[in-house]
């Protein structure tokens, strides 16, 4: 097992472009892999000589391999997105809390994703589809900026065939788009949710998560059965540096996934 603050070497085994600024990297360990993870956890990804960023894990395999989806928004993420097959990168982790997708077993699992927020949810969905009989329904609602900026677009058909009800809405669409146009919360109205049996996992921009959680609360879904994935400035990953503090929480340790009854009062404080 690697030390928690030292990166393990991984090689890019495959690179798949998702959108104009987002790629999915399949990574294979060169030496000892990082410990096993749970869906929703993240790693600190290291672009040698440039820096580290926290990135959620979006899948596994083959073997001890990991799948991570990165959006180019700065120097480190641009370097990671540009990493070609065979290139070496570093990984620390896995860190943080996870979706606890098993909690939805016996009821309805509702996944609501906005933009690249689908990446941390992908593995939770795959885990649920792998145990589909344990869930009454698996509903996936996805919001994207435009059809061209939808991540994992080529996987949606497989998710549907696997038993998930998948709906996509976009903010901007041209003639010919046969899906929904609007905000992802509007899809909740069409999903026929049974609030008493629903466990919701939400990831996306914080405003989107707040609005979605509020809509779900208005429909009657208990706050404790709504889980959100929060982001702050995670640096060390081991709850030492304090950069990711949100009130009493250090999100690299106590998050990123927390239940909405814990998150709601913190998200209401403007300066946190």
């Amino acid at each position: 097992m690697t030390a928690p603050t030292l990166p393990a070497r991984y090689r890019v085994a495959e690179r798949r472009g998702e959108t104009h600024d987002t790629v999915t990297l399949a990574l294979q360990p060169v030496d000892q892999p990082i410990p096993a993870h749970q869906p929703g956890q993240f790693t600190m990804m290291y672009a040698p000589g440039i820096g580290e960023v926290p990135i959620s894990i979006s899948g596994t395999g083959p073997g001890a391999g990991l799948v991570q989806t990165v959006r180019a928004v700065g120097a480190v993420t641009r370097a990671l997105c540009a990493a070609g097959q065979g290139q070496m990168i570093g990984l620390r982790g896995p860190y943080g809390t996870h979706w606890e997708v098993d909690r939805a077993a016996g009821g309805d699992l509702l996944i609501v994703a906005g933009g690249i927020g689908l990446a941390p949810l992908r593995e939770a969905l795959l885990a649920a589809l792998g145990n589909g009989a344990r869930y009454r329904r698996i509903v996936v609602l996805i919001g994207a900026r435009s059809p061209a900026e939808l991540v994992f677009g080529q996987e949606l058909g497989g998710w549907r065939r696997g038993g998930a009800e998948v709906e996509v809405t976009v903010d901007q669409a041209m003639e010919g788009w046969a899906g929904h146009v609007g905000v992802v919360t509007q899809l909740l109205g069409y999903a026929d949710i049974d609030p008493a049996r629903t466990t919701a996992l939400i990831c996306g921009p914080e405003v989107m998560m707040r609005l979605t959680a509020r809509e779900l609360r208005a429909l009657g879904v208990p706050a404790a059965r709504i889980r959100v994935s929060l982001e702050r400035n995670m640096r060390c990953g081991v709850a030492e540096c304090g950069h990711c503090q949100l009130g009493p929480l250090l999100l690299c340790r106590d998050g990123p996934v927390i239940s909405y009854d814990v998150a709601a009062p913190l998200l209401a404080i403007r300066e946190l």
């Binding site: 960023v53 959006r71 180019a72 928004v73 906005g114 903010d171 905000v183």
Partner: peptide
């Protein structure tokens, strides 16, 4: 919904180069 879409929430946070 129109107001929320005007916020363009799914755009990259800040200009390229601002983030990590």
């Amino acid at each position: 919904a129109a107001r929320i879409r005007m916020l363009d929430l799914y755009a990259a946070a800040g200009q390229a180069g601002d983030g990590p």
